[in-house]
């Protein structure tokens, strides 16, 4: 797969002279490509005169950055305190078994990525999962089965 680097270039141009812009640039790159490609990192390093290792230092420090392409549907399972008490860990274990991937991984067909998140901040609806940008509260194992089926069949 070749990466269209012109979009990275544009992002760098736009932000280059702003103070403390590096994290913002990487966030924008990720929102364009869905992850931060190695080629983009190299370009940012050259243009901003920083070492790639410093950029990777940032990318691996913050939970939000991804160095690999992710699945079409991102399932985030909340592991906050309220969700833990209400069975959030069991949901994550079950999904992991069902999809055959550990958290942080993507299914072979590229359909689902599974992620654990520390807290989605809707503790009153615990246990909570988020698929793409939709929140689902009061989730049970049955509901997970239904949701995975629903999203598997979703086109686009």
């Amino acid at each position: 797969m070749t990466i269209d680097l012109s979009r990275t270039k544009k992002i760098i141009e736009k932000n280059k002279d702003k103070k403390g812009a590096l994290i913002g640039i990487l966030q924008e790159i990720q929102s364009v490509y869905g992850y931060v490609p190695r080629e983009s990192v190299d370009l940012v390093a050259r243009e901003m005169s920083v070492y790639p290792v410093n950029i990777y230092g940032i990318l691996t420090f913050y939970a939000q950055f991804y160095l690999q392409p992710r699945g079409r549907h991102i399932i985030r399972v909340c592991q906050g305190t309220a969700c833990h008490v209400m069975g959030g860990k069991e949901l994550l274990d079950y999904l992991s078994r069902k999809l055959g991937i550990a958290d942080g991984q993507t299914t072979k067909d590229g359909l689902f990525s599974l992620e654990r998140v520390a807290c989605l901040g809707c503790c009153g609806m615990a246990p909570v999962i988020m698929i793409n940008n939709e929140f689902y509260g009061g989730v049970t194992i049955q509901k997970l089965d239904e949701l995975v089926k629903e999203y598997s069949e979703k086109k686009g």
């Binding site: 592991q79 906050g80 309220a82 807290c119 503790c123």
Partner: peptide, 11 residues
């Protein structure tokens, strides 16, 4: 940056 799991008042 409300990061405490279990807190959502700031949100």
């Amino acid at each position: 940056d409300e990061g405490d799991p279990g807190a959502f008042m700031d949100r």
